[in-house]
Amino acid sequence: MATTTGKADERLSAASPVVRLLRRPEVGAIAGTIVVWLFFALTAGERGFLSLRGTANYLEVAAQYGILALAVCLLMIGGQFDLSVGSVIGAAGMITALLSVHYGWNIWAALVVSLAVSLLIGAVNGLLVVRTKLPSFIITLASLFIVRGATIGITRLVTGRTQVGGLGDVAGYETAFGLFASNIPVAEAQFSLAIVWWLALAGVATYVLLYTRPGNWIFGIGGDEKAALNVGVPVDRMKIVLFMTTAGAAWLVATIQILDSRSADVLRGEQREFFAIIAAVIGGTLLTGGYGSVIGAVFGALILGMVQQGIVFTGVDSDWFLVFLGAMLIIAVLVNNYIRRRASEAK
């Protein structure tokens, strides 16, 4: 019976390298990235899109979308939504700023506290989803408003305003800036350190998703929660961890933003939850869970960054970015559905 193990099965030839490639969730996003890049290279290449400075510019924007998209992508593969990440960005940034500027803490201590609060918000989201069995869409829609409202309320109560500036003067700012928000000079351009964070975390997330047990569980939970539970996957614990991961990513984005701009605003991060979801979906992640790729989300975020900054380079009013965003989302979903159907029918 074991005679066939060594030999290649003749039926295997059906799955050609092309089909194998198309089966990969990120293939659409990579193709899209090339198309978008070519488009702006042709229309705005002369106005600086192709320059090193232009590249650094859209990569920095993409990195901020991308860090969030990584975590949101993992969560979505696990079959969940987190609409509260934008609000957590506002809250985390404001907590750090209030503690360091208003109360005079060292910024590192403030960062530890804001990280703890962010993770706590994520854990509460997760716990509520697990305990109430309500859709995470509803739970996190509620926390979107609760967290944003509380951030605005508390900040106004403490400072009487909705912005806190002067972060550049607090103790520990230089080292924190160096770790999170400094720039790496390459020739005449400055590449943001956020890009390094983005790509490094993408590596970690891909590794976790594809080469660890929890990664396999994430796919399982999103693919069929009951099935995963029946074979002993710790479904509830994984869900809570995933919500804490998105909240942690929101904290990192908030930290990069406030250190870069030296100020915090209660409205920071608005709509970022949707950008992250769009980047993940463009990257081939299924809205229904169980399927997707971190690499895809990286390219999804890259497309968003390229388009948002590319439009500026072409000289067109940047308001049109949002129109593009919506159109891109629909196209991505249609293309992904088509590819997935082709891949799973290819017997």
């Binding site: 796919f219 399982g220 693919g223 069929d224 009951k226 099935a227 029946n230 074979v231 299924l286 169980g290």
Partner: peptide, 8 residues
């Protein structure tokens, strides 16, 4: 229902 996840 097999506890199998079709997309995996």
């Amino acid at each position: 229902d097999l506890a199998m996840i079709p997309l995996m």
